[in-house]
Design a binder for these strands. Structure first.
Lengths: 258, 258
DNA sequence: TTGTTATTTTGTAAAATTTACTAAATAAAA
DNA sequence: TTTTATTTAGTAAATTTTACAAAATAACAA
């Protein structure tokens, strides 16, 4: 979606391919070396930053729509992805502030007030987690920028997206105790210290350095390798990999981490 | 919404007052004397039973829409109400089976295929809990029956409503440990045995008769009264009431029950 | 008035889990 | 060989959960 013809077609005929009045918004959390970030985009049409999002094709499921959106913004497929809440309070989208001239300047298309895009929209929130160092943030056709922001240094977001981030973060932190996490976020082979740091960062709190790795091991998701990693003048830590079968089973059936 | 004029107006002009393409569906759980039921409705237009639901007014929030719907079906206001998931997979509503003649027979209105009601719809699922003995089930204008069904003796439901009930029940049972429950479900003054039975029934499992009441008390939501209830040739149990302040605080901030 | 009975309620020991802390093992570099 | 920072195993204390026993009780019948 980039050429002017495509933009025009989306604006004028999008309602035939997408479900009107419903969108998805994605809180994409990015982790790397003990840093937690969120991906934001800057609309051409709007002043501030907001969460990436989009419409749902009439032929795809909600999860597919969210996955497509996350893929388009980060270039990464098949992330851990969860629906967390639908947002639909009237006034959340500020459609009353519609400015035909501005739309024309930005899109090059004459948009009238009865266009399918200019109407009340209910948005379904998803969150995803990825390794931000592997991603290539890419704006969509309606936005001019797309970048990672530190989780505790976010700008004021547009619409109800502040609340969305808050809810997404809360849900993510609760679900960390009930789903396995780490795949795609850690190197193929990793140390207990690395996965410990991952959990600490995502949860935003300290976890006992001696007990937490034991709890992780007790879940039975990790396989200990006969290899160690050299980390300078210190004891070399063992390397681990995820047991893919146990991991996928845990994704389906859930786990309990205390 | 009952007269023919109102039905006709809803079908022909509803898209002006309601948000098209989005609906809500409510799994309304009913409790009374150790029985757990679900409220189902039977559409005039559709063969089997399904969850009650409806559209969202352009002026109301999602929760208001759900509450209005629950109120219309049960006659009871202000129940414990929670959003649990949005459902939007294509094909879930079977709009391809649209039958103009049948719609006319049922509604007395000539509905064409481009009507706002005949299109892909994404539904936001809410669940609620009420005392079914106090409710007066009432069909909506599109349905011919509305009745309580035993939770473990449900008929096969239409659309994706089997999955909705399953998800609603699962979410409800998880949230029972994180929100206070019992208000409106028990008499104003109740015994520990009664609230114990409530939890057992909603959770669908046994809870230790000696330890569970202690856990409940530990939450600090109950006030012990200086009254007892006569229950025949047995020790008279104490009566309790909810501490409204603590209860409301717990509703907002959550509790932890083990 | 006194036992009988079923239920409520308190008490407590055992079991299990979590937490806090100690110390041994280790590997590279000085 | 010693130093050093980190990994990792071990364990005792603290806490929580569970299981079970027994006391309290109130209506009724004898």
């Amino acid at each position: 979606m980039d050429t002017q013809a495509e933009i025009e077609d989306f604006i004028l005929n999008g309602h035939l391919r997408y479900v009107p009045h419903v969108s998805i918004d994605c809180a994409i959390f990015g982790y790397h070396e003990q840093q937690l970030k969120v991906l934001l985009i800057k609309h051409k049409y709007i002043e501030g930053w907001c969460l990436p999002g989009g419409y749902i094709k009439r032929t795809e499921t909600l999860v597919q729509a969210a996955n497509r959106n996350v893929m388009e913004r980060t270039g990464i497929n098949n992330l851990f992805l969860q629906q967390f809440k639908a947002f639909g309070d009237p006034g959340r989208a500020r459609i009353n502030e519609f400015d035909e001239e501005k739309w024309f300047r930005v899109t090059g298309v004459r948009v009238t007030k009865n266009n399918w895009l200019i109407d009340q929209t209910i948005s379904i929130g998803f969150y995803a987690i990825t390794d931000f160092s592997r991603s290539v943030p890419k704006p969509d056709m309606m936005s001019e920028d797309c970048a990672w922001f530190d989780i505790d240094n976010l700008p004021k977001l547009e619409f109800d997206h502040d609340e969305m981030v808050k809810e997404a973060l809360h849900t993510m932190r609760v679900q960390l105790y009930h789903y396995p996490i780490g795949y795609n976020l850690l190197p193929e082979k990793f140390t207990l210290t690395e996965i410990h740091a991952l959990y600490e960062t995502l949860l935003g709190k300290k976890l006992d350095i001696s007990n937490f790795p034991k709890k992780l091991m007790a879940l039975g998701l990790l396989k200990k390798l006969n290899e160690k990693r050299s980390i300078g003048p210190h004891r070399s830590p063992h390397l681990y990999v995820f047991d893919k079968d146990a991991y996928d089973k845990a994704l389906k059936e859930g786990v309990v981490l205390s």
